[in-house]
Computed example of a mutant assay.
Amino acid sequence: MAVKVLVVDDSSFFRRRVSEILEQDSDIQVIGFAINGREAVEKTAQLRPDMITMDVEMPVLDGISAVKEIMASNPTPILMFSSLTRAGATATLDALDAGAMDFLPKKFEDIARNNEDAIKLLQAKVKEIGNKRIPRAFKPITHQKPAARSVPDKISNTVSSIRQPDRSFQRSTTASTLTKTQNNVPTRASGKQYKLVAIGTSTGGPVALQNVLTQLPANFPHPILLIQHMPAAFTPAFAARLNGLCKIKVKEAQQGDRLDPGTAYLAPGGQQMMVEGRGGSKTLRVFEDNSERITYKPSVDVTFASIAKAYQGDVLAIILTGMGADGRDGARMLKQTGATIWAQDEKSCVVYGMPQAVANAGLSSESLALDDIATRIKSETGCG
């Protein structure tokens, strides 16, 4: 059955363009249009689309407010179209918090290397998102200011070990700690020692990362690398937002950054992020990648491959919601060194693509609901 789409935009040209692209795919049917957010709310109730494409900036009622009203009255998967500006990034992140599932740049030339690839990506996202069902009791994300960080933003491994009198995270490899996830599933920490946590994600990732990272304590014992498929204009705003919400420090990665515990480093959009160095101190290499062979910039595979060389098996790597299979090859390299790989489960994913690729390849040892991942990370790393 075709995915039924409501196209919302105040530009008649853009409405027509989106409609023409979508209806090139026989599995997609555009069933209506709305020229502002208020009309979008009304037509969602009237037409009951499977998904909505939504502009951010519109008269009468803007896209963010429309998302909030739709999610409160008739929860429906929504794909935002956004300008690649600082203001556009902030507004889009607000829309995701309100309940939108994903976003794309409004200029198609910013979506992919060529027009044909951009068309295929838009069609694929609409079909993936349109087949997702949202609980009627959907609740938008509300931001709560975290408690003040009790430790300096930049700390060394030596200071980290000294300021924890009980050294609870320095467990022997024979330790076994019984915990329960939020779904009351009993789990045991493996007792494995780690030096790094790495998380890769795409569609649905901004909300998923926020869910996980806001639950981690300020004294988290390891550095964290974040690889989120996202345009260059968006990653500074996203890193700043996470930093304001989390107890740990979150920053957009920069060339030469030293990896410190209690800090998460977000790969910059449009670039690749790799770890360099063996032994003690590790630093980040951030660089432009003009290769047409690698689709994603940043790429989970690229970062994971470098981690496998730098850290060997002392890594907890997690693949969250996202389209495609980015992360599978990198996870395989990590697995070969003895690293631990987890994947988000299908039910809690916006798109069960990347986690499914890892799970089907037999690389992940656990399949976890999103709401349980932070609890398991804290247990596994000894800081729960």
Score class of each variant (00 low, 15 high):
L121M: 11
K154T: 14
V30E: 06
E116W: 01
A137V: 13
D25R: 13
K251Y: 03
N211D: 08
K120L: 13
N243K: 01
F304N: 09
G244P: 04
A253W: 07
L6V: 02
T53V: 04
L104A: 04
P105M: 07
L245Y: 01
P217F: 12
L226E: 05
K154Y: 11
L245V: 02
A339S: 01
N183T: 09
I141S: 13
E292I: 14
K378H: 08
P75Y: 09
I78R: 06
G88V: 14
S306W: 01
R38T: 08
E42M: 12
Q182Y: 11
Q182N: 15
K251R: 06
L121E: 12
D50V: 09
Q312G: 03
E128M: 05
S365G: 11
A89W: 09
V300T: 10
A89K: 10
M51H: 06
M58S: 10
Q356I: 00
I52P: 00
P75Q: 07
E292N: 14
I31F: 08
I141M: 14
E346C: 12
K180N: 15
T174Q: 10
A198S: 03
A369L: 05
K106A: 02
P236M: 13
S365W: 06
Y296I: 08
V8H: 10
I227L: 02
R15S: 09
F287S: 02
I319F: 09
A40N: 10
I319A: 11
S12N: 13
N211G: 07
L242R: 01
M51C: 10
T90W: 08
K180D: 14
F33G: 01
V358M: 00
S156M: 11
D25L: 10
Y296F: 05
F220M: 00
V3I: 01
K180M: 14
T173L: 03
A137S: 15
P146T: 13
S83F: 02
R16A: 03
D55K: 12
A175R: 13
K309D: 12
R293W: 11
K125R: 06
K309M: 11
S379Q: 10
A374C: 12
T321N: 04
I21H: 02
V30R: 05
I64L: 07
G99V: 09
D27A: 13
P140F: 03
P231T: 13
N36R: 15
N114T: 01
A361I: 02
A325T: 11
D314P: 10
Q170K: 02
P140M: 03
M80E: 00
P75N: 11
Y194G: 12
S73D: 00
T337F: 01
D110V: 02
T337E: 03
A148S: 13
D62L: 15
S73F: 00
Q336G: 05
A66G: 09
A253K: 05
L320K: 02
C383N: 09
G244E: 07
F14W: 12
G327L: 14
F81C: 04
V41G: 05
S161Q: 13
R278G: 15
I141L: 15
S12G: 10
A147P: 11
G362Y: 04
G262M: 04
T187L: 01
V18P: 07
